[in-house]
């Protein structure tokens, strides 16, 4: 269940890592809609779009998928390397329920190593 309206157009691949944890990935195509303005002639995938990649990946791999999970916060996000057109982003997700809420954290990696460490919080709006 992807958010209806998102600034990241790429397709999210949802699989599992060798150790069984959920793994999501996406190739950052040169046609991503943010690139013309970020920045003209020097496309760099914005940090918030790396967060959005994890947001959409977390929803794709959410536990209790019949529940409606809605992003309620960003506990933390730290960026270590820039992302450019053509890069493939990968994240192994750690999803856990935290009372009524959910928490999904991951290290996002790209072709040149670590890109970001992000922890998101979700509200559970109940079973659909």
């Amino acid at each position: 269940m992807s958010p209806a309206c998102t600034p990241v157009a790429g397709r999210i691949e949802h699989g599992t890592a060798p150790d069984g944890t959920a793994r999501v990935s996406m190739t950052v195509g040169p046609g991503e809609p943010v690139f013309p303005g970020h920045y003209p002639g020097f496309p760099i995938f914005p940090g918030v779009c790396v967060i959005e990649f994890l947001h959409r990946g977390a929803l794709a791999a959410a536990p209790e998928p019949d529940h409606t999970w809605v992003l309620s916060g960003i506990e933390s996000a730290r960026f270590t390397n820039p992302v450019f057109p053509g890069d493939t982003l990968t994240a192994d997700l750690t999803w856990r329920r935290d009372g009524a809420d959910g928490r999904c954290s991951a290290s996002v990696t790209g072709p040149r190593g670590g890109v970001a460490r992000i922890a998101l919080r979700f509200e559970d709006e109940g079973a659909r």
Binding site: Y39, F42, G73, I74, F79
Partner: peptide, 17 residues
């Protein structure tokens, strides 16, 4: 964005929507 000094989004924490 490509000057001799660039501004980068280093990180963020404690964001609540």
């Amino acid at each position: 964005a490509r000057g001799d000094r660039v501004m980068l989004f280093g990180g963020i924490s404690g964001v609540r929507f």
